[in-house]
Structures are given as structure tokens and as C-alpha cells.
């Protein structure tokens, strides 16, 4: 159900653009108003969510320790997977965020007759995830060319590296290829692996379809359909300089692309995509395992009712005396 709903949700989004732009001539709405709204919803939404999480206390220091603790100086510790210091935590987080360290550990359990259980290393999800996120980042960075005049040198360098193989005209970007492949992989594993299909919700398929459609429209625009790049740049520069203009005759495919991106921006703060910010706040990863060396304060710690020694001795005094155990009160 989730997959069908999500598929048609994205189709509906595309239809909306056709009706809005082609039918009702709402170029300004789709080219200016919605992108602005989406951008600010994204910005404020993400800030709101992060602040909301940030306001919630971290009552206990609960890192998942994934290596040897620091105890005796003669025992080799694992300062990254089981950090004792803030520097260690920083490195652990860097590995986690930049290289998906935890996912790199992934194994696949297999049961054979016997029974014999084995756990082979499996890196596909790690690889697919890494490919998806990094190509997305590069593509996003390349798009900055639409928001700068003149175009910064660094973006040109990225573009030339990305088109290194000089295939086709316009030059094929390697990241476009990998990106589409990675999204497809992430979708296929959701459908093909029975367990993953079983746990998948509409909110897992929807961003995949949405992002795939964004990629596809982008590819169509760049490689197959003639789009008015100068006009588009005029529009995007208008947006960043707050002097919005809507040039005539930009292909509908651009408006579809832009509307899907806007949808992604709006959807982002209210969805699981917030894992991007959330991972930084994860208490099992971003805390040092130094609980016994440095006290962690729980801001809402409160006194609790305890069973005191006095009550205990009152309950058992005679038995304690008979057993020769020392007591406070004879």
C-alpha cells in the first residue's frame, strides 16, 4: 500500500505542475512563490526540529562502546570506537557522519542445516548509501552555479572533475549516473529483500520516488530536452538576489524539477530525512565513555524513596545479632 500511495503521490505532484503551469499559467507561483516558501520552510523547519531535540535533556551518558575501554595504561584502548575524550568523540562522529562507520560493520546472518549460523560481511548497503549521499552532495554543490555570477572557481573544478571522462555533449557527469543507480539500488533492496519490504512504509518509498524523479527530470533537462539554461539562470539569480523574475518559455520540465525539489524541501523537516541532523545528536554516538571518571549530570534528577539501612536493620536486627553480624542499635 505504501509503495502505491507514494508512487501516485509523486505522479500527482507532477500533474499539479502541468495543471498549474501549462494550464493555469501560474509561472510566478511555481517559479518564485513555492520555491521561496519551500526554502524557508526547510530552513526554519530544520532549525525548529534541531532546537526541539536540543531542548530535550540527555539524562544519562549511554555511548554504545564498540572497542576496548580505557582502563590500565598497558591495555591498548580503542580511542575512536570507544572514545574517552572529546577528541575521540569528534573523530568517532566524523567517521560516522562522513564514512558511515556503523553501517560499514554490517553483516548478513545465514542459517544452514546443522544448524550452522554464519555472519558474512556485507557492504552493499554501506556502499549504496555512501554513493547516494555523496553524489547527492556533489550534485547539490554543482547546482550552486545557478546562484552565483560569476561562477566560483571551485564549482568549475568540481564540474570538470565530475565530467572527467568527457563523454557526450553536454558532457556526462559521473555523479548523475551513480546517483540514479544508487537511488535505484536503495529502492530495489526495499522491494526485493523480504524483511526490508515488510518494514517499509509510505514514508520510506515517497522520498525515494521523489528523489528519483528529481534526478530523472534533471537528467532529462540536461541531456535530452532542450531547456533554456540562460532563462533558468535568470530565474535562479532573481531568487537569490530577491529580485524575482520569471523569464518566458522555460520548458515545463524545469518547473516539474523545481516543484519536486520544493516538495522535498518542505517534506524534509517533518520526515525521517531529519536523520541528517539527528545523527549528530545521537547519545549512543556523541558521548565519551568516561562515566566513571567524570560525572554526567541529569538535569531532572530528583530524590527518590529508598529503603534505608536503618529500616533494613529494624527488619532483621534479631537475626543479624543471632548470626553475629554487627548492628548499629543493640
Amino acid at each position: 500500500m505504501g509503495i502505491i500511495f507514494s508512487f501516485f503521490a509523486v505522479i500527482a505532484l507532477i500533474v499539479i505542475v502541468f495543471i498549474g503551469v501549462q494550464g493555469a499559467n501560474l509561472h510566478y507561483l511555481f517559479g518564485v512563490v513555492i520555491p521561496y516558501a519551500a526554502f524557508f520552510i526547510f530552513l526554519l523547519g530544520v532549525i525548529y526540529r534541531v532546537l526541539q531535540w536540543g531542548r530535550i535533556p540527555v539524562p544519562f551518558r549511554i555511548p554504545t562502546t564498540a572497542g576496548q575501554q580505557k582502563s590500565h595504561p598497558w591495555i591498548k584502548t580503542n580511542p575512536i570506537d570507544n572514545p574517552f575524550t572529546a577528541t575521540g568523540v569528534f573523530i568517532r562522529m566524523a567517521f560516522e557522519v562522513l564514512l558511515f562507520r556503523s553501517l560499514f560493520r554490517n553483516t548478513k546472518a545465514e542459517l544452514r542445516d546443522g544448524p550452522i549460523l554464519s555472519y558474512g560481511s556485507t557492504k552493499w548497503l554501506w556502499l549504496g548509501g555512501l554513493a547516494f549521499h555523496y553524489t547527492f552532495l556533489i550534485i547539490l554543490t554543482r547546482h550552486l552555479r545557478f546562484f552565483f555570477e560569476p561562477i566560483p572557481g571551485v564549482i568549475k573544478i568540481i564540474e570538470s572533475l565530475d565530467g572527467f571522462f568527457q563523454v557526450g555533449a553536454p558532457v556526462l557527469y559521473l555523479t548523475d549516473l551513480i546517483f540514479i543507480a544508487a537511488v535505484t539500488f536503495l529502492f530495489l533492496r526495499r522491494v526485493v529483500i523480504p524483511q526490508v519490504r515488510y518494514i517499509s512504509l509510505a514514508q520510506d518509498y515517497f522520498p525515494l520516488f521523489l528523489i528519483f524523479s528529481i534526478g530523472l527530470t534533471g537528467v532529462l533537462m540536461r541531456y535530452f530536452l532542450k531547456t533554456d539554461v540562460v532563462g533558468i539562470k535568470e530565474l535562479t539569480m532573481g531568487l537569490v538576489t530577491f529580485k524575482p523574475v520569471v523569464p518566458k518559455d522555460i520548458n515545463i520540465i524545469f518547473y516539474i524539477h523545481l516543484f519536486l525539489v520544493s516538495t522535498l524541501f518542505i517534506y524534509f523537516p517533518m520526515s525521517k530525512l531529519m536523520h541528517m541532523a539527528g545523527v549528530f545528536l545521537s547519545p549512543t554516538r556523541n558521548l565519551a565513555n568516561n562515566n566513571r571518571a567524570e560525572m554526567h549530570v541529569n538535569p531532572w534528577n530528583y530524590p527518590v524513596k529508598v529503603h534505608t539501612y536503618e529500616e533494613y536493620e529494624n527488619d532483621f536486627r534479631d537475626k543479624m545479632k543471632a548470626a553475629g553480624l554487627p548492628v548499629e542499635k543493640e
Binding site: W53, V58, L125, V196, P283
Partner: peptide, 14 residues
């Protein structure tokens, strides 16, 4: 925070 975050950010990667 752990609880809230863990309820919010799971992507069901499996």
C-alpha cells in the same frame, strides 16, 4: 533525547 530521537529518525534501512 535518546528516546525522542530514536523514535524520530529511523529510516528503516534494515
Amino acid at each position: 533525547r535518546s528516546f525522542r530521537l530514536f523514535l524520530d529518525i529511523c529510516v528503516r534501512c534494515g
